[in-house]
Design a protein around this nucleic acid. Structure first.
Lengths: 149, 149
DNA sequence: GGCAGGTAGTTCGTAATACCAACTACTTTG
DNA sequence: CAAAGTAGTTGGTATTACGAACTACCTGCC
């Protein structure tokens, strides 16, 4: 492995190696891998998994859903189409505003999502069990501090 | 996984709401979103970003790369094709085993990857700065404990 | 009241990602 | 040396994602 051929050396700046960022990114890919695998076992892409996760306790219009996922409305249309065809989601035109389409889970979708997310917990929990209880508490606090608005 | 029906009550219920798993998943999507955005700004998909990350300090055969990413060899072919066309990666037939193709970064690819990963650090660092120094140390330890083989 | 402009979703065309099955080209094994 | 196995590519298909163009509806404004 060839290292650092005659390069300029920066003493200390934002772009220097940052082990915490690296660990966070590694962990992210690890978890994403697990989620992708669980999704695949249930014929769900990572994105569809997220859709189900978001709609578990919400009813959102298409644009809101797109905003949650960071996707275009046009992308949402296709995602909703396919999930609707599978009977997981349903669309309903808003009575107040005829342009708006609300998206929500069908009972079958809710049940399915419940099962898949149980699976997610079962899959991720063992890795978390490697931590001592007080470490888990710490981690929860830190993650919440990180993702706090 | 063997279940003991007589002790079901005392088993840890992996399907109960688990705030730590939820926080981990939320954080994962948050970081993935940031990585996707940074990738998009550089015309890279999340997967291509990972490829560059993995090859930064390694030279791998196609199958190994696929294993790292959890993808099929056939998927790798396309990913490598496109990155090669952009001049970021190169292929080389192994002299020892004529079936094997090694993949590695070109100097231009290395430079590009460096720039993109600097961007990743610059983007993620601010969120991490919200934590106190000793919290950052804690988090690093916890993440490393989690992703340890 | 009517229409100009804005907003919500869908449709269409395109590219990338990902899979599987089938293939080629090598290597290893019997 | 033939048969079986391994590494990678190719081709076909579905999904994901984007942007542009479109439809339908709502809101202001005259």
């Amino acid at each position: 492995m060839v290292r650092n051929p005659n390069h300029v050396k920066y003493d200390r700046d934002m772009t220097a190696a940052n082990p915490l960022v690296d660990a966070l990114v590694r962990c992210t890919f690890e978890v994403t891998g697990a989620l992708t695998r669980i999704g695949a076992e249930n014929d769900l892409s990572l994105t569809q998994l997220r859709v189900l996760g978001i709609l578990r306790d919400r009813r959102l219009r298409v644009t809101e859903l797109a905003a949650y996922l960071g996707l275009e409305k046009s992308t949402m249309s296709g995602l909703i189409d396919r999930a609707e065809r599978r009977g997981l989601l349903a669309r309903e035109r808003s009575p107040e505003d005829g342009r708006v389409v609300d998206v929500f889970m069908t009972p079958a979708g809710r049940e399915f999502a419940q099962r898949v997310y149980d699976d997610v917990r079962r899959t991720l929990a063992p890795a978390l069990e490697k931590l001592r209880p007080e470490q888990r508490t710490q981690l929860l606090e830190l993650l919440e501090a990180l993702t706090a608005r």
